[in-house]
Design a protein around this nucleic acid. Sequence first.
DNA 1: TTCATTCAAGTGGTCTGACCACAAGATTTA
DNA 2: TAAATCTTGTGGTCAGACCACTTGAATGAA
Lengths: 178, 178
Amino acid sequence: MTGSQRPPSKFVAAISQIQEMIKADRIRPGDKLPSERELSERLSIGRSSVREALRALELLGLIETRRGEGTFLRDFQDHQLVPLISTFIFNDDQKKEHVQDMKAILEMGCLAILAKRPDFKNNAISLQADFHELMDAAGNSLLKKIWLIISDYAGTSREQDRERLNELLMGFMKNNPS
Amino acid sequence: MTGSQRPPSKFVAAISQIQEMIKADRIRPGDKLPSERELSERLSIGRSSVREALRALELLGLIETRRGEGTFLRDFQDHQLVPLISTFIFNDDQKKEHVQDMKAILEMGCLAILAKRPDFKNNAISLQADFHELMDAAGNSLLKKIWLIISDYAGTSREQDRERLNELLMGFMKNNPS
DNA sequence: TTCATTCAAGTGGTCTGACCACAAGATTTA
DNA sequence: TAAATCTTGTGGTCAGACCACTTGAATGAA
């Protein structure tokens, strides 16, 4: 027989279903999810599989689990997956470079956005500024979120960031004289 | 009693231990990890907990699981983590503009990488090229991955992409005369 | 009443043992 | 030799049993 691709594992299916449930039931960050046992019943899968799904989501920082209380939807702010994955990344220097480059690209992009503004030189950018503020100023939340994640992976210090920012700014001033 | 912080859950501990084991045993991408049952024994924790850890790692794209064969360490390059996080990131962030800007930033970054190469003008970039090829040429898998996802969300056509690429190239040529 | 104590129910955390589905190699058989 | 068949080892899943913890209700003492 051909074409009989086996279905995705239960725990992967569970993740999707849980996400759908979150949307359908309008569960918001901070709200409580159904208990593992209830999920198990509603999704008709064993509790173990539910747990595997929940543990994975937890590791991603999408949910939070409190023993004796329940499982709660979380805001994406503090993703713990970063330190975790970075240890894996550290095995490979090339990948580390990629992360660094990626970060630089995002930062350049941030500056490019700001540079289009008339008040670019005046207030928004002082040499005391750091990218957290600049990202806010740029007003692209998507950019900022991704930058935050990448920054975490990159693992550079605030000082290093600031130094490079200065360098970048110098370059910008030169290429974009007002 | 105060200050009795309870230990991290088994499955979190398992993740760390598995990581250490990978390092200690010099397991490289593509290699096989010990079986779940063996891990269970070696780490002295139940197989369920081992599985919760492995499932989480799998969702992060750090390992790959093949039924009947085993569990294998994976190259970080194909981490599914990015698409995963992205679905979440895009949740509250439907701002189309942000996505477009983000895409442009990534593409500029790609060009910037290529521009540093001596053969920039010669072969790598022809006006027939599109960003798929350019991203490959840039050689930053992380960049490409994120770009692909963003592109997906941006929903622009290949033609639109090519047009903008041409515009960008023009600008680049102007600002970076060889 | 009011406050503290106790208790019961619900929840996540973990383990065990049992199957199933699958892949690969060894073994048997034609 | 070549095909068909075990056998073994692996992940996938489930059910049931405890444990640890939180909460709130029930209970009792002031």
